[in-house]
Amino acid sequence: MKGWKELEIGAITEAGSADSYNTGSWRAFRPRWIEENCIQCLFCWIYCPDSAITVNDGKRGEFDYNHCKGCGICAMECPGKKGKKAIVMEEEGK
């Protein structure tokens, strides 16, 4: 912790610094990506509240577990392939 004399005045000057803050420990459930069921629709990416789905060159990559809070929205919205979801939620610590 910084003492008050060391604090910067009035503003947070580093844009996007929250990126270095871990909210992954909030998770009670953990999303797991099943790549073979993924049709790369990117609904999970556009609907994630925590920017926790990585995308490289237009393709979905792994979850960013440092930020994912385990809400389950991605799993809910995932259409998957032939009725098989490409995201499942699993209890943490099991």
């Binding site: 990126d19 509240p49 925590d50 960013d64 809400c71 389950g72």
Partner: peptide, 11 residues
Amino acid sequence: LTGGHRLCSGC
């Protein structure tokens, strides 16, 4: 908008 914000899960 980066991750690591403290809005509730599923907001």
